[in-house]
C-alpha cells in the first residue's frame, strides 16, 4: 500500500505540543539548567557538572527527609486503604442514606489544603483548641509544637481525616458495580461473609484500589501545605518532608542549584515508585 504523507497534519498536533512545552517541558528544563550550574548573582552562571547531585545524595538532610516522607506515606496508606474499604463496605447501597453518605464523604475533599491545615492547627492547640485543650485537661501530654510524636500524630490524623473519603468513594464505586446475582450466587453456594469479601468484593475493587493507592501515594509523597501550616516542619525537623525541605532550600536559603538537583531527584523517585506500584499491581492482575 502506498503511504500518503500529509505534513499539514502536524499543525493539528502543534497546539498541544506548545501547551505541553510551556507548561511542563520548558519549566522542567529550566530546573535541569539550574541543577548543573552555580551562580553568585549578577546573572552569571558557571558550569558545575553533577556536583549538586553528588552533594544532595550525600547529605543527611536529604536522606532524613526522604525516610520521613516514605514513613509518612506508608503509614497513611496502611490506615486509609483498609479504613476506606471498611467504610465503603458499610455504606448503604440504596435509599436516601446513599446520598447522605456520599455528601458527607465528599465534604472533606471540598476543603482546600491550607484550610484543612488551619482547622487542625487551631483544633489541636493546647490553649484554645477543642482537641488540644481536652487532651490537656485529661492529663495527656499533647503539644504538637514541642513534641515530635504529637506532631506526627496530628499530621497523620489530619491526612486520614482529609483523604480517607477519596478511598471510600473509589471503593464504593467499585462495590456498587457488582451485580446482585453475585451475592445471590454466593448465598446459594453457602459462602461466608469473609468469602464474599475475599472472592467477590475484593477482586471487583482491585482496579479502583490500584488507583486509590497510586493517588494517595503520590499525593502523600508530595505533601506540603498541611504540615507547613500546622507544624511548619517542626518541632525541629521532625515533620520536614521532602517538599518542605525543598522550599526551605530554594526560597529560604536561595540555594537554587542544590534545590534544582533535589527537585529532579525527587521527581525521579516519584516517577520510579509510581511505575513500580503500577507494574506490580497490573502484573498481578494479568497473572490472575
Amino acid at each position: 500500500m502506498q503511504k500518503t504523507w500529509n505534513n499539514k497534519a502536524w499543525f493539528l498536533v502543534l497546539p498541544v505540543l506548545l501547551l505541553v512545552a510551556f507548561s511542563a517541558v520548558i519549566p522542567l528544563m529550566t530546573v535541569v539548567n539550574y541543577s548543573v550550574q552555580d551562580t553568585f548573582g549578577n546573572n552569571e552562571f558557571f558550569w558545575n557538572g553533577t556536583d549538586w547531585f553528588t552533594e544532595i545524595l550525600h547529605s543527611d538532610r536529604f536522606w532524613d527527609a526522604l525516610v520521613r516522607n516514605l514513613s509518612f506515606s506508608v503509614i497513611i496508606l496502611a490506615i486509609e486503604i483498609p479504613l476506606g474499604i471498611v467504610i465503603a463496605l458499610n455504606m448503604p447501597k440504596k435509599g436516601v442514606g446513599v446520598s447522605v453518605c456520599l455528601v458527607l464523604m465528599a465534604l472533606p475533599l471540598l476543603i482546600p489544603w491550607n484550610v484543612v491545615g488551619t482547622i487542625w492547627q487551631v483544633f489541636g492547640r493546647v490553649d484554645i483548641g477543642l482537641l488540644g485543650h481536652t487532651l490537656e485537661a485529661l492529663g495527656i501530654n499533647y503539644n504538637y509544637t514541642q513534641d515530635p510524636f504529637a506532631a506526627w500524630i496530628t499530621v497523620i490524623v489530619m491526612d486520614v481525616w482529609h483523604w480517607t473519603s477519596l478511598v471510600v468513594l473509589l471503593c464504593y464505586a467499585g462495590l456498587v458495580s457488582i451485580p446482585d446475582a453475585y451475592y445471590q450466587a454466593a448465598k446459594i453456594d453457602g459462602a461466608s461473609r469473609w468469602s464474599v469479601f475475599r472472592y467477590i468484593q475484593l477482586p471487583k475493587m482491585k482496579r479502583v484500589l490500584l488507583i486509590a493507592v497510586l493517588l494517595r501515594f503520590m499525593d502523600s509523597f508530595m505533601i506540603y501545605t498541611e504540615p507547613f501550616v500546622v507544624t511548619g516542619g517542626g518541632p525541629g525537623n521532625s515533620t520536614t518532608f521532602l517538599s518542605i525541605d525543598l522550599v526551605k532550600m530554594a526560597v529560604g536559603q536561595f540555594d537554587l542549584g542544590p534545590a534544582a538537583a533535589m527537585s529532579i531527584i525527587y521527581f525521579l523517585i516519584i516517577l520510579l515508585l509510581s511505575w513500580v506500584f503500577y507494574t506490580v499491581m497490573t502484573q498481578s492482575d494479568a497473572e490472575a
Binding site: Q184, A185, D189, A191, Y199, P203
Partner: peptide, 28 residues
C-alpha cells in the same frame, strides 16, 4: 439447601475452574 443457576454467568474470577466448582462443597 437449594442450588440455583442464574441467567448470566457468576464465577469467582480469582479462583481456578476447579476451585470454583469446589466452592459450594468446601463451604459446607
Amino acid at each position: 439447601n437449594i442450588a440455583q443457576v442464574f441467567q448470566f454467568p457468576v464465577i469467582y474470577d480469582t479462583m481456578t475452574v476447579y476451585d470454583n466448582l469446589a466452592f459450594p462443597l468446601r463451604n459446607r
